[in-house]
Design a protein around this nucleic acid. Structure first.
Ligand SMILES: Nc1ncnc2c1ncn2[C@@H]1O[C@H](COP(=O)(O)OP(=O)(O)O)[C@@H](O)[C@H]1O
Length: 394
DNA sequence: AGTCCACAGGAAGGCTTGGTTA
DNA sequence: TAACCAAGCCTTCCTGTGGACT
């Protein structure tokens, strides 16, 4: 027993563990090379280059599936642009904003507030009117004359929640004398932009940049590039890298997933004090990646959401109509001594589950017997069992 | 050929929480 | 202190609709 413990400690202490620089695998880290994205880097650089002459670049719309390097390429080009601008004393401000992060910049107020804060002003989270924050932002932009390049990552969230904001922002240059502002919108969802009014739409997509999915070989190159400086020599075989790449390639060529798989596999290997990352570690990681995601989602679920899930489980059918689910839910809720929510609300809760990949739904018509929606658990990774397990103590 | 079910899902607005400012 | 403010959660009210049935 104590032998084992010593083995673990000495293994860590010797420094000969699996990782050399684990942070290189973190998704926030931007590598110096982006294999298979040379074209996009070059195109984006060309689109943004006019800013170095203080000419306003076109607004750019960047799209492609998740994990295809959109954010990485944009930040990469932005960093280089910043560097050049600084060296030559050109006033360019490259502002990266993720509008998809909840409670950060996902509403009109929060977006303006976020920009104000990046420009050095303090703005409270709430309490003051939105238009006041907007005016403060305008004032900051004007009193710090520059060419502003504003990246709106996951812009589809803003398109959905607050199209007016984008309309305002796309026309902001008419209110600016000393500064100019260009928008780079990034999204996983090409169709998102179509729900905007046509003026905003064409304004935001003056130029477009497409990121196609990576194939398995490309992912392999990316992983190798990233892992070179990351692992101790001899720890990682090509076959292991290939396995990660192949798995991620099946999930719309997602480089983020590939990197996470590799990291989790290596962490598993490290925990077992294995000297190499093995295929079995990858296979475990494939399961864990998904389980962990579902697990954190379910754990923090409010009561009513849990009751809805519980009701679906208790119906014990491969598929259920929303009406059945709701009736069961009302029963479940009253047993627990709570007041039930309306059907309308439960419908929205089900939609949230669908967005999280917990259930799949389908609207059908039963003709004479009206329209309804069919709900079933998503088939991947025995979600149903996971949900069941987490709800036992309810 | 037309009816009409039973629900989907949009719109608007209320209530609550946690904040500001004068 | 009173008067505002943003946003999340939820209800109320409502319009729209695919297709079995007549
Ligand atoms: N060509 C590449 N070379 C190295 N790493 C990459 C490459 N493309 C993507 N990545 C990495 O994959 C992860 C996800 O990429 P990201 O740019 O965030 O995808 P997207 O924004 O398209 O969803 C990041 O950690 C990123 O650094």
């Amino acid at each position: 027993m104590s032998d084992d413990i010593e083995k673990i400690f000495s293994f860590y202490a010797s420094g000969s563990s699996i990782f050399v620089r684990k942070d290189f695998l973190q998704s926030s880290y931007i590598p110096a090379e982006l294999p298979h994205r040379e074209g996009q880097v070059k195109q984006l650089a060309q689109m943004l280059a006019p800013s170095l002459r203080l000419e306003k670049p076109s607004n750019i719309f960047v799209y492609g599936k998740p994990g295809t390097g959109k954010t990485a390429v944009t930040l990469f080009v932005g960093a280089h642009l910043n560097k050049t601008a600084q060296e030559k004393g050109i006033p360019i401000k490259f502002l990266y904003i993720n509008t998809g992060l909840k409670k950060v910049a996902d509403t009109e107020y929060r977006l303006y507030a976020y920009i104000c804060r990046m420009l050095g002003d303090f703005v409270p989270d709430t309490g003051i009117p939105t238009h006041t924050v907007f005016e403060r932002m305008l004032h900051l932009l004007e009193s710090n004359p520059a060419m502003y390049l504003v990246v709106l990552d996951e812009i589809d969230v803003l398109i959905d929640k607050s199209p007016d904001t984008l309309y305002t922002l796309s026309r902001i240059n008419s209110e600016l004398k000393n500064s100019k502002l260009s928008i780079i919108g990034i999204t996983n969802n090409v169709n998102a932009i179509n729900s905007l009014d046509s003026r905003t739409k064409s304004s935001l997509s003056e130029e477009e940049l497409l990121f196609p999915p990576y194939d398995a070989n490309q992912l392999c190159d990316i992983l190798k590039e990233r892992s070179d400086a990351c692992f101790s020599p001899g720890v990682l075989d090509d076959s292991v890298v290939m396995l990660c790449a192949a798995s991620a390639a099946r999930e719309h060529g997602d480089a983020r997933r590939a990197l996470e798989l590799l990291r989790i596999s290596a962490e598993l290997a490290e925990r077992e004090t294995s000297l190499k990352v093995l295929k079995k570690h990858v296979n475990t990681a494939i399961g864990k990646l998904y389980t962990d995601k579902v697990h954190t989602f379910l754990k923090t679920l409010p009561d009513h959401q849990k009751m809805v899930l519980k009701s679906i489980i208790e119906l014990d059918k491969p598929m259920a109509y929303t009406r059945e689910i709701y009736d069961k839910y009302v029963e479940t809720v009253s047993k627990a001594g709570l007041k039930e929510l309306t059907m309308r609300r439960v419908l929205d809760i089900l939609a949230e589950f669908e967005a999280e990949g917990i259930v799949r739904t389908n609207v059908i018509s039963r003709g004479r017997y009206g329209r309804t929606k069919i709900v079933e658990f998503a088939t991947v990774d025995n979600i149903k069992e996971q949900v069941e397990k987490l709800l036992v103590n309810l």
